[in-house]
Design a protein around this nucleic acid. Structure first.
Lengths: 216, 216
DNA sequence: TCAAAAATAGGGCAGATGTCGTATTCTTTA
DNA sequence: TAAAGAATACGACATCTGCCCTATTTTTGA
């Protein structure tokens, strides 16, 4: 199998490094062209509809890799896109994935890793460096697919909810007392009652459990 | 580096296949024992606290791999878990991830793939076969992800993240120390450093800020 | 290979917290 | 209207927490 590959990367040095890595596998991976930004990439794709996969940098002038991915996935949905970047923060990962990228490799990827990643994607899978995979998992763990626990008849009074609200901000009972215009003793008593109702024994457990039960 | 590995798998034939694959790398990957179900696994772990990583089947009698993962991640948070299964449906994948699994490989994985996956996980990353990665990405594409704030250069060490993880469950110094097998003084020092890095002054603020910045 | 960072560990202190009491006043509602 | 719940308030005590200090060993990165 022979796959046709384009590169979107503004930095010539890094682009050449990628081309060099691809060259080790030229029987399978055929480098066709390079664009210096998202705009140029889209234009070139209009005139060259045989590209199978794009190695996409994120940070580029004019149009960045994430915007370009969105446009390309809409206009040419069969083209696979692998992000190649130094940025491995959650925002870039999530945005890339939600734009439809099929993979996410770091720039320090070896030629072999790049090769394997491209093949994996072309076979219908996805590819991620382990550290990126880890972050993706973390995001999935907290993502909104949650099973909120249904109210097991926990009823907090209005005042108790107000106190809990303040607690969740990390405030101490002294400060909360001032904010709610009552004495610290009262706040402490409320907290005691909240703990009893939620069956917990400290602030964090209380806040966590309240969140789970949508009491906050 | 030498990693100690346990296997949870009810089918003896498949368990032996795994052991065989591990044996190719016995310098690095030391197979310690096998359990036939989740219950047996948890019991054996109580008596053998040196395990680094578990290869976990999902479908097992008595207690399945997902339940076992939840329990083990709670009781022994430093142990890494890689799911090894024939099931690659969205439900199993999502549940495994949300139980805290660090990786998800299919049973047809080669010895080399298994080896690489284990090393990736032990280095703090995650591992997924490309088809699983693809499904994880699909889930992430449609998932609602809560609002977060851009990383203002906050870098927590691996250990600090582990401590924060435990903190977020509402545990005290003493308990965390026991779970991570270090002295309370060490935990307190880690927490001090975490507070400084996050610029906060108590547990709740730390947990809240960490959530916002997806450090947790 | 050498310096920096991370992980480990302990001491001390002031103040915060969790958990008991008890008690008065005001609302809600059966 | 009487009882129950909610909100208010104070005291006491052991423990936990946040913050300061120092110090050694291990790991990592340049």
């Amino acid at each position: 199998m022979n796959y046709k590959i384009a590169i979107a990367e503004d930095n010539t040095f890094l682009a050449n490094a990628l081309i060099e890595k691809l060259s080790f596998f030229k029987e399978e991976l055929q480098y066709l062209f390079r664009a210096r930004d998202g705009k140029e990439l889209v234009e070139k794709l209009e005139n060259n509809q045989e590209i199978d996969l794009i190695l996409m940098d994120i940070k580029m002038p004019n149009m960045n890799g994430i915007e370009a991915t969105q446009i390309i996935k809409k206009r040419f949905p069969t083209i696979k896109i692998v992000m190649i970047t130094v940025f491995d923060d959650d925002e870039n990962i999530l945005q890339s994935i939600q734009s439809g990228a099929n993979g996410y490799l770091l720039k320090e990827a070896t030629a072999d890793e790049l090769h394997k990643g491209i093949l994996d994607v072309m076979k219908g899978g996805a590819t991620m460096t382990p550290s990126i995979a880890m972050k993706a998992l973390k995001i999935l763990q907290t993502a909104e697919v949650p099973q909120y626990v249904e109210n097991e008849n926990i009823k907090l009074s209005k005042r108790e909810k107000e106190v809990l609200e303040q607690l969740s901000k990390g405030l101490g009972y002294q400060v909360i007392a001032e904010k709610l215009f009552v004495s610290p003793s009262t706040i402490r008593k409320h907290i005691e009652n909240i703990y009893r109702k939620l069956q917990v024994h400290n602030k964090i457990e209380a806040v966590e459990k309240a969140r789970k039960h949508r009491l906050l």
